[in-house]
Amino acid sequence: MLVDSHCHLDFPDFAETLPDILARAREAGVTRMLTISTRVRAFETYRRLSEAHPEVLFTVGTHPHQAAEEPDVPADEIVALSRHPRCVGIGEAGLDYHYDKSPRDVQARVFRTHIAAARESGLPLVIHARDADADVERILTEEMARGRFSAVLHCFTAGRRLAEAGIELGLSVSFSGVLTFRRSQELRDIAAALPRDRLLVETDAPFLAPEPHRGKRNEPAYVAHTARVLAEAIGVGADEIGPLTTANFHRLFAKAAPFAS
């Protein structure tokens, strides 16, 4: 039993082959997939996809790459949309200083709006953080002081300090196929040092396929490879990592629990 806690099944990469992709996920033991919003204005796309496929849940939010497209979506609109029964989280939102596709001040403003929506809705925020560790930590610390909210640092590839800060703030940490790469020993060491009840696994499909599929289009079935490497890194059996990360997912995304297989 595994959950792919972060994928993008609405992307064009999957348009022609989604039924086959979902079938391969089931065969690999992936019982639940969370498809992640990159634009609030695409809400109907995520809604229809989730309603058509019982194993797929979704979130609502604006990716930092698209922050300049949706700079002023209010928190109350995000909260209202999140009331759909199959919408279980807010985001993804955050900061990306690697590509800087949106101005940094706009990214930060949209990030704080999504934190407000997570706080108000009670749903967890999916955080995107790339090459922006210090500012992500600062915003999270400031906002947590204004009122608690739950969140996950998704596709974690940042430094140890951000991982530790996230744990101190009560966040979870999700690992993608990057964990399996030969040169990712430091990342595996970080994973080994984190509390086991805060660990999730994801694909971020169609991106970042794990070994032995690196360089190919990623898909939810491949989360099994990341889970295996995570099990090795933290010192648990291969048969334990699925139940462990699945329980962690449902603890964080509590609204998803009634849909558990």
Results as ranks from 00 to 15, higher is better:
28 A>M: 04
247 A>D: 15
170 G>N: 08
145 A>V: 05
257 A>N: 06
32 R>E: 04
6 H>E: 02
114 H>N: 09
224 A>T: 12
84 H>G: 10
253 F>N: 04
259 F>Q: 09
164 E>W: 06
36 I>M: 12
239 D>S: 15
234 I>L: 12
105 D>A: 14
260 A>Q: 13
31 T>M: 02
181 F>H: 11
17 T>K: 09
44 E>D: 15
108 A>Q: 12
118 A>M: 10
250 H>Q: 04
8 H>S: 01
219 E>H: 04
173 V>Q: 02
240 E>R: 15
175 F>C: 05
207 F>T: 07
244 L>C: 11
23 A>K: 13
174 S>A: 15
139 I>H: 12
228 R>F: 11
221 A>F: 00
255 K>T: 13
239 D>M: 06
183 R>Y: 01
1 M>E: 08
8 H>Y: 00
84 H>T: 07
111 F>I: 01
250 H>D: 14
114 H>D: 09
196 R>I: 02
218 N>V: 01
114 H>M: 12
243 P>R: 13
78 I>K: 03
144 M>E: 06
66 Q>F: 15
82 S>M: 02
241 I>C: 06
26 R>D: 01
260 A>D: 14
175 F>E: 03
187 L>P: 04
99 Y>Q: 02
91 G>K: 07
70 E>Y: 01
85 P>K: 11
102 S>R: 05
9 L>A: 03
157 T>D: 11
211 E>R: 13
123 L>Y: 07
115 I>L: 13
40 V>W: 07
250 H>V: 00
220 P>K: 10
254 A>S: 15
255 K>L: 13
94 G>T: 10
206 P>D: 03
2 L>E: 00
127 I>S: 00
96 D>M: 12
236 V>L: 13
227 A>R: 03
160 R>L: 11
238 A>V: 09
194 L>Y: 01
34 L>F: 11
109 R>W: 07
82 S>Q: 01
18 L>W: 03
206 P>S: 03
137 E>S: 14
31 T>F: 00
23 A>N: 10
230 L>E: 00
79 V>L: 07
16 E>T: 07
164 E>D: 11
61 G>D: 13
86 R>A: 08
126 V>D: 11
145 A>W: 05
